[in-house]
């Protein structure tokens, strides 16, 4: 039996779980109905697109890079799906096209970063503008999706009933499935291990025979695909697409990853931690809604404060190690 022990790498993760529990229990004590199953389910359902996109960005950060295009790609995908369905394409085909587009978009950025040794920050910044602009070319404003697949199949058939009046939305199912798959990928696959190795020390990883180019391009491809999946989930959630939506989503995603224990320098991080980070953002938002009088921008203030606390915590841990 392995002894349970807190290594410096897992302390931030444990801390973020503790914060989540404190916030949630605090909410339950302060407000009636906060502890209801419905609120809990909505926490997953409402934040599913953020969660899926944040998982993608977590892989990029693990590899030592960054992806700023996430929000724009989610928005572009959502309007692309709405537009394609509007032109008569079957939703499944539209989703497949969007996912392929997202992956190709990520692969293109990854190739630029790897082959021309360009900084990820700038390449994905360019990608962000490109994707944002392309969204408006597809359709300049919000476009609702009217298709039985969306209206009945996804919203009704695919949701998991819990009680007679309550069911788990398919978006939440997507989020949980992505988290499980990504956790497996990060921990048990050669790809996941190579990503962590490159993020920790690219020069050493090269000497030790890790395929650098392939892995790095794949990381951005995966992030692009997951951003697109985030867009798909967003259309399930909103029953529409909007090229102007999700501005700054990538920054929420980065915040969620960091609060969940991923180091921005790369090499250290946990996929379930990112889910915890996303849920913390969601709980703060719900708390402010329940409170009722506070401006919704207080969510940002709380997240900002929390981010400071967590990066400070990580710094203290790293320093004590030295």
């Amino acid at each position: 039996m392995k002894k349970l022990r807190l290594s410096p790498q897992t302390i931030p993760m444990v801390a973020s779980v503790a914060v989540l529990i404190v916030l949630y229990v605090g909410g339950c004590l302060a407000f009636d109905n906060f502890g209801s199953l419905r609120v809990l389910i909505n926490l997953f359902g409402d934040n599913a697109f953020l969660g899926v996109a944040a998982i993608g960005i977590t892989f990029v950060i693990l590899s030592g890079g960054i992806d700023l295009s996430v929000g724009a790609v989610v928005a572009l995908t959502s309007i692309l799906i709405a537009g394609l369905i509007g032109h008569g394409l079957h939703p499944l085909a539209a989703i497949a096209v969007s996912l392929a587009f997202g992956a190709a978009f990520g692969a293109l950025m990854g190739t630029l970063i790897q082959v021309f040794e360009l900084p990820p920050f700038l390449v994905t910044l360019g990608g962000m503008f490109l994707a944002r602009g392309l969204g408006f070319v597809v359709h300049p404003e919000s476009l609702s999706i009217d298709h039985p697949f969306y209206g009945d199949f996804v919203s009704q058939t695919l949701s998991l009933p819990v009680t007679r009046k309550l069911s788990i939305p398919f978006t939440a199912v997507c989020l949980v499935a992505v988290v499980i798959g990504a956790t497996m990928l990060a921990r048990w696959s050669r790809f996941g291990r190579n990503v962590r190795a490159i993020g920790s020390s690219e020069a050493s990883a090269r000497l030790m025979g890790v395929p650098i180019a392939r892995t790095k391009i794949l990381v951005y491809t995966l992030a692009g695909a997951l951003s697109a999946l985030g867009g798909v989930v967003a259309t399930f959630y909103m029953q529409s697409g909007n090229p102007a939506s999700f501005v700054g989503l990538e920054l929420d995603a980065i915040a969620a990853a960091v609060i969940g224990g991923t180091l921005l320098r790369g090499g250290v991080g946990f996929i379930p931690g990112t889910l915890v980070g996303v849920l913390i953002l969601g709980v703060i938002q719900t708390l402010i809604i329940f409170q009722g009088t506070l401006n919704s921008w207080w969510t940002r203030i709380a997240v900002g404060g929390l981010l400071f606390v967590f990066i400070l915590l990580q710094q203290l841990i790293t320093r004590r190690k030295k």
């Binding site: 291990r193 993020g199 920790s200 020390s201 030790m208």
Partner: peptide, 13 residues
């Protein structure tokens, strides 16, 4: 070697 991987991973990477 890779500082953030375990001893075992470093030996077998």
């Amino acid at each position: 070697l890779i500082p953030d991987l375990s001893v075992a991973e470093n030996i077998c990477l």
